[in-house]
Every structure is written in structure tokens, then in C-alpha cells.
Design a protein around this nucleic acid. Structure first.
Lengths: 201, 201
DNA sequence: GGACAAAGTGGAACGTGTTCCTATTTTAGA
DNA sequence: TCTAAAATAGGAACACGTTCCACTTTGTCC
């Protein structure tokens, strides 16, 4: 497609296309923030992004793709923001708990948005595997970096395994909270317990 | 309601009602086995159960309720079947891994059914909290019993916490498999790693 | 057994995700 | 600049979860 802009890893097309994509994702986030998963209606997204319904489907082949892509963009922002900030805490467990709780609090400050994105993530099937994988990598890299902030320590297989288990627990806790089956406090507790079990050294 | 049948803990109504409920759940399982979540269509369930659509909704207020109730019934069966069988394995970790892998294999032998039930479980909101909680309790009790088969050992808080974390990992692994993001082998591996991390003593 | 309430039937109707079609606009290449 | 291809607009149409309604059957109480 675009032969001029060869710098970007992902080819996002022309400026107009990039702009449309951005408008669509912005509209998605806005609607999700206001009314959660159910409020992200494809017709409403198209209208708010000033795009035809067919065009919306050309950019994102389903509501789930749309929401997972929005999640990916949000998560990348969070991850970048976190990268610059120094990580407080002496022990590994402390650092992981601090960072996870902070992130969780951030998500819980916009419950509707979190609900929409988490729901989409859980419902995504194989056709969204690429986006999902991207998010999973971001999470794992975030966790392992928190575990070994120096950066020069070699990551062991066990580190990665632990990061993965923590990610699983985090996701389960988030789903419990999003679906109204547990409170914010319980969510934090659940994560803390798991981290302490896994990082007791 | 029924004053005669006071033995049952849950009042399930008349024999006709119990029969309808059973027919509906049977139809649900059949359709789910054949075509997964998407194939469980409310009109199809009603027809196969020989029940009007309105009646189906009287028994189960939504598709999610229906599927989670089916999951509950299936899980109760599995759990009872497992209860009678002796648990092989010397160490706690071995026993847990054996049981979990066996259960997972059982589910993977009916992929469509597993997909339908897991999807529903993940999508359930607060209105299904009761049924979800029931399933969660079954899983935890199953795990703790495997961890302490003698029955006379007192359950510590840590035992329950570990069981919960394992349950979370299991669920995440299952979702990954159901949504086509990981293979059956990876699912087993994921569980095994987590259990070994949590039960290393 | 008659009357009343509860449960069930059959099907229309509505909302939202998704698909599809035609006309118009934008873009790329000669 | 002209033309063919690609992208977009606008909106109808379809599928399935869900609701609703008028009518019939079943169950209960006197």
C-alpha cells in the first residue's frame, strides 16, 4: 500500500486512514467509558466517529476486534507511562504488588471502560489471536520488568512462568470484579495473596 | 410452592416442572455439544425441549443463565464421579496435576460443549452470581480435597488460597484453549507449571 | 365440580451485531 | 490530467436474544 512511509513497522495506510482509525478508537473509548460494553454499539461508534457503518466494519471486522484493539492501544499507553516511572519497593513481591494494585486502581477508576474492555478480551476467539497475543506480551514484559528492574539479570523460565500465573490471577480477579462478583478490595487482596505465594524468597 | 416434597433442599416445583427443566438442560447440552456457544439458540433449545420460547425464559431468564445452569449440572456430575475414585499420586502436586489434567482431558473430548460452557461462565454478570458461586465452591472443594485426601487434616487459609490460584490458572488456560489461542498440550503444561510453583514442598 | 390463579403455547415485534448492495468520492498510476 | 481501482457513504436486510401479548391448559382451593 503506502510505499513512502516505510518507517513504521505496521503499515497503517494513509494519513486519512490513520485519522479514521484514531477517530473510531476514540469514539469506542468514549462510549465504553460512558456505558460499558453494551453502550459500544456499532451504529453509535460509526456515527460518533463520523464514519459509515460499512467503513467501521472495514477497519474492525467485529465489535470484539474493535474493543480488543482499543484495549491494546490503552494498554500500550499505560505500559509506556509505567516504563518511565521508577518502581518503588525493596522485594520483588512488594514491587509487583505495588504496580499491579496501582494499575488495577487505575482501571477501577473507569469501571465502565474496564468492563467493556475486559469483557471483550474474555470473549475474543481465535480470529483476534494476534491482538490478544500482543496484549499478553505487554503484560508479561511489564511484570518481568517489575520483577527485575535492573534489566541486566537474565530472565529465567521460572520468572516467565511466575509472571504468567500472576497475569492469570489478575485477569480472573478483574473478571470477578467487572462482572460484579467481587469488590475492589477483594480484587486487590486476591492479587496480593497470589503474588506472596509465588514470590516467597 | 410444593408442600409435599419437603426433602429436597432446593424446591424445584412439581414433577412436570422438574421434567421440563431437565428437558431444557438436556437440549442445551446436546446443542452445545454439536455446535458450541453459537448453536445454543434459544428458539432451537425451546423447540428441542418441546417447550414454548416464553416458557424457556420463565425457567432461565437469559442464555447465559441457561448455559451456566447447564455447566453447574455437568460440574456436579463430574465432581460426584471424581469423589468416588481413589486419588493416585504421592505428593500433593502430583495428585492435583493428575486430577486437573484428567478433568481437562474430559472437557477437551467435547470441545464444543466446553467452549459453550466456558464462554458463558466468563460472560456471566452479577445476575448469575449465585450459580457462578456454586461452581466456584465445587471447584475449590474438589481441589482442596485432592490436596488433602485424608480429610482429617485441617484446611489452612493458605490451602484455600492456593486452590483459588490454581483455579484461576485453570480457568485462564481453559479460556485460551477454548478461544483457540493455545493447544491442549499447552493447556496441560500451563497447569502443571503453576501447580509446581505453588506446591513446592 | 366450579372458579380463580399459575403456567404454558404460539407467535409477533423490537434491538443490535453483521452483511450486502449501489452510488459517490478519493487515491494512485499512466 | 484522465482513468481505473479502492475506499467510503448511506441504508436496507437478516439473524438471534429478548420482550410481550392474547389465548389455552393445568393446578388448587372451596
Amino acid at each position: 500500500m503506502s510505499t513512502t512511509n516505510s518507517l513504521a513497522v505496521e503499515d497503517l495506510g494513509s494519513a486519512a486512514q490513520r485519522d479514521r482509525r484514531k477517530r473510531i478508537l476514540d469514539a469506542t473509548i468514549t462510549l465504553a467509558s460512558q456505558g460499558g460494553f453494551d453502550a459500544v454499539q456499532m451504529r453509535a461508534v460509526a456515527e460518533q466517529a463520523d464514519v459509515a457503518l460499512g467503513t467501521l466494519y472495514r477497519y474492525f471486522p467485529s465489535k470484539i476486534h474493535l474493543l480488543v484493539s482499543a484495549l491494546q492501544r490503552e494498554f500500550e499507553r499505560t505500559e509506556t507511562a509505567l516504563r518511565d516511572r521508577p518502581i518503588e519497593g525493596d522485594t520483588t513481591a512488594e514491587r509487583v504488588i505495588t504496580v499491579l494494585k496501582r494499575t488495577t486502581r487505575g482501571m477501577q477508576s473507569d469501571p465502565q471502560l474496564t468492563e467493556a474492555l475486559t469483557r471483550a478480551f474474555m470473549f475474543a476467539d481465535a480470529s483476534v489471536a494476534a491482538e490478544i497475543h500482543q496484549v499478553g506480551m505487554l503484560l508479561t514484559s511489564m511484570l518481568t520488568r517489575v520483577m527485575h528492574p535492573e534489566g541486566h539479570t537474565e530472565l529465567t523460565e521460572e520468572d516467565v512462568a511466575i509472571a504468567r500465573v500472576i497475569g492469570d490471577v489478575w485477569l480472573s480477579a478483574l473478571v470477578g470484579w467487572v462482572t460484579g462478583r467481587s469488590t475492589a478490595a477483594e480484587t486487590g487482596q486476591q492479587i496480593e495473596v497470589a503474588v506472596k505465594l509465588l514470590l516467597r524468597d
